[in-house]
Design a binder for these strands. Structure first.
Length: 245
DNA sequence: AAAAGATTCAACCGCCTGTAT
DNA sequence: TATACAGGCGGTTGAATCTTT
């Protein structure tokens, strides 16, 4: 992929520093969006998608470089447990990291290791070392089965400055079926511990205990709404909202 | 030092969704 | 309602780099 390929006058492959400069200048002048116009405005022989991707994944000023910190890794694992391969949603909750970054990190650092550990240590709390980073987690992966939704669904994409309540309102359909409730409970509370109010898996940011506690005695449809609207959903994950890149 | 294998990650591809006409 | 187009996403690829033998 290193060598550029030109087909129908459109360049492909790795971006040059000159192309980066042109794209950056263009975005500074015209702002983000209208990607179909960017190649012309910037004087680039790149397709709109290539320009957008280069900006969002590499040139955007808010992008954080360097290794993932332990808290970021912990958050990725928990959000992945919650959302599955919804990388853009996960990235939206991890400041400075792009969906591509997280996807790559997951595929190269976490996916196979977690699967391998899961096979070896069923039912045990495990700790894995990744360079200096320590990941402690429960190995039981619960996939988000109850609801299927498109990554592009309007109700799934919450606004940048949405409040937690608004975000939850966008994310969660009203009055979920019983199996959905059970799934959420299983996500937040360890097996056999629903009645004790003990904390769930993860390295422990304090939010889990609250989540487990809140979910106790929660069964009905009305209470579901109350939980989502009155509680801070992202506190349950031990994170907070951030501006989405 | 060199070859082979493993890993990383930027970039591409195809598909889906939303919107305008 | 149907169609076209743009934006956006997840899956995948493959060159570059690193590690091991």
């Amino acid at each position: 992929m290193g060598s550029s390929v030109e087909r129908y006058g459109v360049r492909k492959g790795a971006w040059t520093t000159e192309e980066d400069f042109l794209l950056r200048k263009c975005i500074e002048k015209y702002g983000e969006g209208k990607w179909h116009q960017v190649p012309v405005r910037a004087g680039l022989r790149r397709c709109r998608k290539s320009c957008r991707l280069r900006w969002l994944n590499y040139l955007h000023p808010d992008i954080k470089r360097g290794e993932f910190k332990s808290d970021e890794i912990d958050l990725i694992i928990r959000l992945h447990k919650l959302l599955g391969n919804k990388w853009s949603l996960i990235a939206g909750r991890i400041p400075g990291r792009t969906a591509n970054d997280i996807k790559n990190y997951w595929n190269s650092h976490l996916s196979e290791k977690l699967a391998a550990r899961s096979d070896m240590e069923k039912g045990k709390c495990i700790t894995m070392n990744n360079q200096d980073k320590s990941i402690t987690m429960k190995n039981k992966v619960i996939k988000p089965q109850p609801w299927t939704f498109s990554s592009n669904s309007k109700w799934l994409r919450c606004p940048v400055n949405a409040t937690p309540q608004e975000t939850v309102s966008n994310l969660i359909p009203k009055s979920p079926p019983e199996e959905s409730i059970l799934w959420w409970k299983s996500l937040l509370v360890e097996d056999g511990e629903e009645d004790k109010g003990t904390s769930c898996s993860g390295s422990g940011t304090g939010g889990e205990l609250d989540a487990a506690f809140v979910l106790q005695g929660f069964e009905g449809e009305g209470e579901w709404d109350n939980l989502l609207m009155n509680g801070n959903f992202w506190d349950l994950l031990g994170t907070e909202q951030k501006p989405i890149i």
